[in-house]
Design a binder for these strands. Structure first.
Length: 864
RNA sequence: GGAUACUUAGCUCAGUUGGGAGAGCGUUUCCUUCACACGGAAGAGGUCGUAGGUUCGAUCCCUAUAGUAUCCACCA
């Protein structure tokens, strides 16, 4: 017997362990059609946040739904080693423990890192368990596991041999805190107010000075030239001359290049090839020297005479002061400009000249762009995100993939100790003692890009790979389309010649109540574990996945979690009622007899079929908001408010076999509701399911409800509609007239179809009426209050004076007149008749006729 | 500087091929009736940002415009 209240703790307790033990999520029926998806592997660094909860629940709903629909579902779990993030975190932990990280060897560090990995794996498993995810743990992977590492090495070597991977010295984004190179997309540009320094450069052999502005004076030690536009009349005469760098009094050659914009700033630019990407290009073009003035930790090196060892900003301040003292500081302007920050450490990124490994993106992007135009393309949901993806592809620069870290896939490149010869190989050279391996590791996203196929053992051309690849859907937030989605598509196309997934479901981010992005630093994060503890994971899951439109952000709202929980309580109690009712009824099986259906049975079946279709259509589009809305309306309005209440009369007063039949319909409805809510809220669904009189070992083994195909009598449907509209009309009337709900008024019914005795019984119970008579229309008591429907009229015997009657009828006439006017306006319009769909015209004509008839009857009821 | 999304009831948001505006919360009145007071019944509340256009008909399509948010962008 179910408790009176839905208690989420009781419902969730021990369930998941049982499911895992039974292996419900790892059983694969190879005779079924495969359906696969891979989890976006969470970093082994942090706690689960609401974004994870949302992302994984969406996938869980898909996995559970598809399984119910008869697919062999593989939902593959796994985690990401998250190079920079994890290394930073482990280092911080070690420092906290008082361990000297500066003298740590690579091997020592890796030992700690793997311990950390084990700890966090447990944490993440615990979190997945709390969310109730239908993951197949027998297929779990880790980006640094043996198989994936092998795949990464293989891909690196393959790309290198094809010329897609190369090593080069160029300007990259350098994170001076993490001490590693970054790719372009790991740099976050923030608009910041900064100083724009205008310095005077005295020209050698002239009294003139050139004014040059810069935001980074500390790089001036590495200046090698001054550049002007060749067409700029102001400066033409100085080309080929020299000017004195106010930072170090060194002469700089003045050259000309079209790159310089005459109208920007003073029209004169200084060239610092080793510390600026554009200057680097100019430096290359004119074969300029490329000195560096900074160390890897963004302190100044020996080139910055007098400032050696100082931090870049300290140097900047002192240098500006020194130039000012020389009288060469012209002015300082405040400007707002985009400053690049490291995604992980949030420090200002320093463009630096460095030797790194790169992936040539153009050929990869080309394939991806061709794919997007072909038939076998990745479908983005919502579609607009495909444009985001394409635009990015079209403007790709080469991807810097080497990182100066320890935690990650070490680059399979070897340098000969004597000759310096470079050897790239997935296996170490035989005479390894003569070689030194490249110390760098690969960008985490390089391995993540292989995730959908490498996890299925693509290299070995395994059975899993053949069966489950390409995967069916990928679910992810829009913020990693560039980082991850697009790279998976590119790598997959180039390596497997297939798209990695057929569809991508893009969701948004979870924001706080005020619409702000949740973050640790802002302290506005909501811990899902607390929400789960308070309201249950089902309420959280329902909230996350049913209030949003695809691709749109959601706002966290405790109110809505409460609303979700109340909805679950509603279903809980409806089930409880049905089960209680069944206790007194002896069911002879579960099959519904279509010949014994009452009007309300017929209507609920009709409405169920409609709802099922709507829900399935929405589920197919992954529109969980619409799917749940349809189901919600069915549960509340059609089932609980209407059918369940009306069926009480049948259960109490119905003929034995009719009563049994209605009980079966009730049970069928409740069973189907439980099954349909299951993908969203599996815990409560399982609990309710197991309390049903007939069930399998677990709802996880169930199939999705199917349409109830029965012949439904049209008159019965009409009768049910009459019952419900009568209830509504009379309740409104009583409330408006300030009549007490229990006033036992009498009622007369006149209909153009047969009305069964059950109709009267139901109305009597639900409206607390006195006597009810079904009569011919001409026999109706003329003094009653009429409610006119299109094919029926009911007459409530109530005393009203003429004034009351007139007021009320006029009120009704007013609304009816509006409707009639609207219909007439449409139907009198020849263009409408000529161009509108015929069905619509017919519908409108019918409406008009019905309303005219009602109007006529209302007018006739007006007191003379 | 480009691009996208959003603007609908007091608040937070739905609204699927253009054909009578919806939900949750809040709010008013009534009901502790035998599934549920985490409830039930009946209401109130919106010129669908603004201005044009297309159409027989626009919350929906097009253009412009205002505000908000996000993403992209090497201009010193």
């Amino acid at each position: 017997m179910l408790d009176k209240r839905y208690d989420h703790k009781q419902v969730e307790e021990g369930r998941y362990d049982k499911w895992l033990k039974e292996g419900y999520f790892s059983m694969h029926d190879l005779t079924k059609t495969p359906f696969s998806l891979v989890i976006p592997p969470p970093n082994i660094t942090g706690k689960l946040h609401l974004g994870h909860a949302w992302n994984t629940t969406l996938q869980d709903i898909i996995a559970r739904y598809k399984k119910m629909k008869g697919y062999d579902v593989l939902w593959l779990p796994g985690m990401d080693h998250a190079g920079i993030a994890t290394q930073a975190r482990v280092m911080a932990e070690l420092r906290k423990q008082g361990i000297d990280t500066k003298n740590l060897t690579r091997e020592q560090f890796l030992k700690y890192a793997w311990e950390h990995k084990d700890t966090f794996t447990k944490t993440i498993h615990e979190q997945w368990k709390m969310m109730g995810l239908a993951l197949d743990y027998s297929h779990e992977r880790f980006t640094l596991d043996e198989g994936l590492s092998k795949a990464v090495n293989e891909v690196f070597v393959r790309y290198y041999n094809e010329g897609l991977i190369y090593k080069d010295k160029r300007i990259i984004n350098w994170d001076p805190v993490q001490m590693t190179a970054l790719s372009n997309i790991e740099v976050i540009h923030k608009d910041e107010e900064g100083d724009f320094f205008y310095f005077a450069y005295p020209i050698v052999g002239s009294e003139d000075k050139l004014i040059i502005a810069t935001t980074r004076p500390e790089t001036m030690f590495a200046d090698v030239a001054i550049v002007v536009n060749p067409k700029d009349e102001r400066y033409k005469k100085y080309i080929g001359m020299k000017a004195i760098n106010p930072a170090n009094d060194e002469p700089l050659i003045i050259i000309a290049d079209d790159y310089v914009d005459k109208d920007f700033g003073t029209g004169v630019m200084k060239c610092t090839p080793a510390h600026d990407p554009n200057d680097f290009l100019i430096g290359q073009k004119y074969h300029l020297p490329m000195p560096e003035c900074m160390n890897k930790d963004a302190t100044m090196n020996e080139l910055a005479k007098g400032y050696v060892g100082l931090d870049r900003y300290v140097c900047r301040a002192k240098l500006v002061e020194a130039i000012k003292n020389k009288g060469l500081l012209v002015k300082i302007e405040k400007i707002v400009h985009a400053v690049g920050h490291s995604e992980r450490s949030d420090t200002v990124v320093e463009p630096m000249l460095s030797s790194q490994w790169f992936v040539k993106m153009k050929p990869l992007a080309k394939k991806a762009l061709e794919m997007s135009k072909s038939k076998e393309h990745v479908e983005f949901i919502p579609a607009r995100f495909e444009q985001v993806f394409i635009r990015w592809m079209e403007n790709l620069e080469d991807w810097c993939i080497s990182r100066q870290l320890w935690w990650g896939h070490q680059i399979p490149a070897y340098y000969h100790k004597v000759s310096g010869e470079l050897l790239v190989s997935s296996t170490p050279p035989k005479d390894i003692e003569n070689y030194e391996r490249d110390k760098d590791v690969l960008d985490t996203w390089f391995s993540s890009a292989l995730w959908p196929f490498a996890t299925l053992n693509w290299l070995e051309d395994s059975k899993d790979y053949q069966r489950y690849f390409p995967t069916d859907v990928l679910v992810t937030a829009y913020d990693i389309i560039f980082f991850w989605v697009s790279r998976m598509i590119m790598q997959s196309l180039s390596l497997t010649d297939k798209i990695p997934f057929k569809r991508v479901l893009i969701h948004g981010l979870v924001r706080d109540e005020h619409g702000k992005k949740m973050s640790k630093s802002a302290g506005n994060g909501v811990d899902p574990i607390e929400v789960i503890d308070k309201y249950g994971v089902d309420a959280l899951r329902y909230f996350l996945t049913t209030i949003s439109t695809p691709g749109q952000d959601i706002r966290y709202s405790e109110e809505k979690i409460v609303a979700s929980s109340n909805y679950l309580n509603k279903i809980w109690n409806a089930t409880r009622y049905v089960l209680t009712s069944l206790e007194d009824i002896k069911l002879d099986g579960l099959n519904i007899d279509e010949n014994l259906l009452t009007s309300i049975d017929s209507l609920i079946i009709l409405r169920f079929n409609k709802t099922l279709k709507e829900v399935e259509d929405a589920m197919e589009r992954y529109d969980f908001n619409m799917a749940s809305t349809h189901l919600y309306n069915f549960v509340y309005d059609d089932f609980c408010s209407s059918y369940l209440e009306a069926s009480k009369t049948i259960l109490r007063k119905g003929e034995e076999k009719v009563k049994i039949n209605t009980a079966k319909v009730l049970l069928k409805m409740v069973t189907n509701i439980i099954k349909m809510i299951y993908p969203y809220t599996p815990f409560i669904a399982e609990t309710l399911y197991l309390s049903l009189p007939s069930h399998l070992a677990s709802i996880n083994l169930e199939t999705y409800p199917e349409e109830i195909s029965m012949k439904l009598d049209k008159n019965l449907i009409k009768e049910a509609n009459l019952i419900y509209s009568s209830i509504f009309a009379i309740r409104s009337f009583k409330a408006e007239q300030k009549l007490r709900p229990h006033d036992a008024l009498n009622l007369e019914i006149a209909a153009k179809f047969d009305v069964s005795p059950y109709a009267s019984l139901i109305l009597k119970d639900l409206l607390h009426l006195g006597e009810i008579n079904v009569l011919n229309e001409d026999k109706l008591d003329p003094s009653g209050k009429n409610f006119i429907f299109s094919e029926a009229k009911i007459n409530l015997i109530v005393k009203q004076d003429d004034e009351e009657i007139t007021t009320e009828i006029n009120k009704q006439l007013e609304t009816i007149e509006k409707e009639i006017l609207r219909s007439k306006k449409m139907l009198d319009n020849p263009s409408f008749l000529a161009k509108a769909p015929k069905a619509l015209i017919e519908k409108e004509k019918e409406k008009l006729a019905a309303n005219l008839s009602i109007k006529e009857q209302l007018v006739s009821k007006l007191p003379k």
